[in-house]
Computed example of a mutant assay.
Amino acid sequence: MYDLHDHVLMKKAHACGTNDWEIIRLGMDIKIRCSDCGHIVMMSRHDFDRKMKKILSHAAEAEG
């Protein structure tokens, strides 16, 4: 399962060309930030679950 500050791979690439996004808000809606250009997108949890391909890295692994 995903958590705050995890990096995820989305099915479709962003306009800047990357699929790597960081989760910056969790709740009923999920807010993600493009790792390349910094663009922020907010979508429902249902839409996020359908559009996410896989988790690239967990925030807990990066810290320690």
Rank of each mutant, 00 (worst) to 15 (best):
I24E: 10
I24H: 09
Y2C: 00
M28F: 09
G27E: 01
M43Q: 15
S44W: 02
S44A: 08
E63N: 12
C37W: 01
I40A: 07
D36P: 02
R45N: 07
L9F: 01
H5W: 04
I40M: 10
L4S: 08
A13I: 04
E61C: 09
D49W: 01
H7N: 06
V41S: 06
K11W: 02
I23G: 02
H58V: 02
D47T: 15
L9Q: 10
M43E: 13
C16G: 07
G27Q: 03
D20K: 13
L4R: 02
K53P: 00
K12F: 13
R45V: 06
I30D: 01
H5F: 13
D49Y: 06
S35Y: 01
S35H: 02
M10G: 04
H39W: 05
L56Q: 06
R33D: 02
M28A: 08
H14R: 09
G17Y: 07
A62Y: 10
H5S: 06
K54L: 04
I32S: 03
K54T: 12
K12S: 15
D20E: 14
K11S: 00
A13E: 15
D36G: 01
R33P: 00
G17K: 08
A60T: 07
G27V: 01
M1G: 15
A15K: 14
F48H: 10
E61M: 05
R25E: 11
I32Q: 03
K31V: 11
M10K: 02
I32C: 05
C34S: 07
R33H: 03
H58G: 04
D3R: 10
C37E: 02
F48Y: 15
K53I: 00
C16S: 09
A60V: 08
K12D: 15
A15C: 05
K53H: 08
V41H: 06
D36N: 13
E63F: 11
D20Y: 04
G38V: 04
E61V: 14
V41Y: 09
H58E: 07
A13C: 11
I30R: 06
I24S: 04
